[in-house]
Amino acid sequence: MGLKSIISTSHLSVAYGDKVAVEDVSLEFESREVSALIGPSGCGKSTFLRALNRMNDFLDDVRTSGQVIFHGQNIYDSKIDPVLVRRRIGMVFQKPNPFPKSIYENVAWAVRKFGFKENEVRERVEVALKGAALWAEVKDRLKSSAFELSGGQQQRLCIARAMALGPEVILMDEPCSALDPIATAKIEDLIAELKEQFCIIVVTHNMQQAERISDRTVFFLNGKVIESEATSHIFNRPREELTKNYLTGRFG
């Protein structure tokens, strides 16, 4: 295990009932790095992502085996409180999902639940909104409903919301798939900036996006990792024939 790696998996498998969605995956993710998980639909990349902060716990009939090591602890250990794990490993979802609250409250709510005083909450909200490149657009209407924002703004609000808690890892599950190209470009720029502070793991179905934003790319197929390499490497000289075929569009 590399010294820099902040979160890693060891022989991680996830099954829904009889169907094995992720099979024996051992990977390491480093801080200040963007990793892209790519692969065709149903290859297990989203399931793998959700396994990293125990979001699969809410699905029925899910069995997880193997380990996810975070801060030297297996998060699937029975002694671990999954809620505390999720506070340090944030998540951004496919569809922007702001709460039916004001823009301010969307970010402030969870922060407040951690026991911060209101002036600290305000500060954190501002920092998070600035960090998510949203502050300039919303600073005059913090009290209005988050639903008044455009889809791209909503997604940046969701990123701000996750950032405000000061996580170490941010998981993003196809964060741009519901967005138009302009909004997508903004999120991609944002990811590049966030890399300075967080370990970011992005699931994407868009290979060009993976190439643009990531430092490392992991190619999933049928629940297994086929190849995990530096992005420039994997897109130029893939080691595996399967990777090459996928990247050149032979199958998808």
């Binding site: 809620v83 979802f93 999902n97 969701c158 996750a162």
Partner: peptide, 23 residues
Amino acid sequence: YLRDAGYGLGMRRYQIVSSIVFP
């Protein structure tokens, strides 16, 4: 997805129920 959002922020179920789902 609103519940997911809450869980993703490391909130407990009662917090999500009382602050997100019930409202």
